[in-house]
Measured scan of single mutants.
Amino acid sequence: MLDDRARMEAAKKEKVEQILAEFQLQEEDLKKVMRRMQKEMDRGLRLETHEEASVKMLPTYVRSTPEGSEVGDFLSLDLGGTNFRVMLVKVGEGEEGQWSVKTKHQMYSIPEDAMTGTAEMLFDYISECISDFLDKHQMKHKKLPLGFTFSFPVRHEDIDKGILLNWTKGFKASGAEGNNVVGLLRDAIKRRGDFEMDVVAMVNDTVATMISCYYEDHQCEVGMIVGTGCNACYMEEMQNVELVEGDEGRMCVNTEWGAFGDSGELDEFLLEYDRLVDESSANPGQQLYEKLIGGKYMGELVRLVLLRLVDENLLFHGEASEQLRTRGAFETRFVSQVESDTGDRKQIYNILSTLGLRPSTTDCDIVRRACESVSTRAAHMCSAGLAGVINRMRESRSEDVMRITVGVDGSVYKLHPSFKERFHASVRRLTPSCEITFIESEEGSGRGAALVSAVACKKACMLGQ
């Protein structure tokens, strides 16, 4: 009897593995994704193909990295998701002549009506938060230079001027797309009239992360975010950046690689679950690469896999709870928690219980395998993109072996128990001629924006502006 049951459990697990095998990517698959990513990057950089390229390769006008001589107080704003952060950054000489960066910050959550109302409502709310922060720190009387981390696709015309191309991540505030974001912020500050600010720089969160990590390690020339969304930036040779005049030196390019796949480059790798996630998203047909990796989508992918296993009578005796059938019910943090389970399955059992399920031991094991399959594919897909960037940098610099540091931020990278190990191992397999160091950014977005502002202020002083 026991043997029969054991055989049935083994057969069930084997069927589960057959279904989950769809998520496995072979090294040849990853090399294919990497080569296609490089081709799209090239198209994004070139003037004649930029418009139709899915990977936009947006110039950021960040050319210099901090040298350690900029000092002063800077205000930093960070808008990239449902939370908005205001930070005071003091850049100065530390002990023994070292450079020191001290920060104080406060988080504000953005109400739904500000995210989806008008641009005026959104930026009025942001300036209200700045006003509140300055009151708390008794700094209303000071006109501070301000660095703005704005983590949406922007076409820069200068370091302090950028046109919002399109909202992502659930934002829909009308009247912002096609307009200068810094102008919208300046107008809102003017409307309030109770404080003055000098907006000197606007950067993407990947750029802010790279600059913040450069402060720790001067070989950091790539910034990457794996959180709600997924994106990367890197220092490109100016001669390859056709959208900006000049051939000397390097400029940081914001790849906006989340949109890779929007022209069909990933079609052969998309599964039924991916198509369902895409169809029910706020932007169907867009940001397809990001939807395979980002935390906004990972939990939902797992939920759809679990429903398939229920329908195949391989999980929960073929019956799903009402909660499990509800879109968004299986949160991405559950994926991390399930994979963090120590082996007694308590954590998995508790999560499934909150979803109205009474799982068996085998159910718990199957749910864990589903989570591992989805998150491992995410790590491997992400590795193909980064390997594409790094191999490109090595080739354009004609280096036999390139040493490089990548600064990384984002909740999936930082909080998932195995993502970074799987990701690092896969990147290294795909970049055999590179020695890569990964560092995690601390308060990256805010500190990085302030350091970019410090560079901009120093330049302005040198130019006598």
Results as ranks from 00 to 15, higher is better:
Phe269Val: 04
Leu463Pro: 07
Ala232Trp: 02
Ala329His: 07
Gly72Leu: 00
Lys296Cys: 13
Val33Met: 05
Arg186Asn: 02
Asn231Val: 05
Phe438Cys: 01
Asp400Ile: 10
Arg46Thr: 15
Glu128Asp: 14
Arg85Ser: 10
Thr361Lys: 03
Val101His: 07
Trp167Asn: 13
Val310Cys: 13
Phe423Ser: 04
Glu435Asp: 11
Glu268Leu: 05
Ser441Thr: 03
Gln18Val: 10
Val62Gly: 00
His156Met: 14
Gly80Met: 15
Val200Asn: 07
Gly68Ile: 09
His380Lys: 14
Asp135Ala: 05
Pro432Arg: 09
Gln337Glu: 09
Trp257Pro: 03
Met202His: 02
Leu79Val: 09
Asp198Thr: 01
Val452Lys: 13
Glu245Thr: 05
Lys102Ala: 08
Leu88Gly: 03
Asp132Trp: 03
Lys414Leu: 14
Gln347Ser: 07
Cys220Ala: 08
Gly295Val: 13
Val86Asp: 00
Ser411Pro: 09
Glu112Ala: 08
Ala370Tyr: 00
Ser411Ala: 08
Lys15Ser: 15
Thr354Phe: 13
Asn231Gly: 06
Leu243Val: 00
Ser426Gly: 10
Glu440Gly: 06
Ala320Tyr: 06
Ser396Met: 15
Leu430Gln: 09
Lys420Glu: 10
Gly117Cys: 12
Gln138Leu: 11
Met393Pro: 04
Trp99Ala: 06
Ser281Gly: 14
His416Phe: 10
Lys414Ala: 09
Thr376Gly: 08
Cys230Leu: 02
Lys136Ala: 09
Asp187Gly: 02
Glu216Ser: 05
Ala456Val: 10
Asp274Cys: 05
Leu164Gln: 13
Asp78His: 09
Val86Glu: 06
Lys136Ser: 09
Ile211Ser: 00
Ser411Glu: 14
Ile436Arg: 00
Ala21Ile: 14
Ala425Gln: 13
Leu451Lys: 10
Met210His: 03
Tyr413Thr: 04
Leu165Asp: 11
Leu315Thr: 06
Val89Asp: 02
Cys129Ile: 03
Asp158Lys: 15
Val335Gln: 07
Thr49Met: 08
Gly410Met: 14
Gln98Gly: 09
Ile225Arg: 03
Leu144Ala: 04
Pro111Met: 07
Gln18Glu: 08
Glu268Gly: 04
Ser263Thr: 08
Gly385Trp: 09
Glu312Ser: 12
Lys31Trp: 05
Met41Glu: 03
Leu165His: 13
Gln286Phe: 14
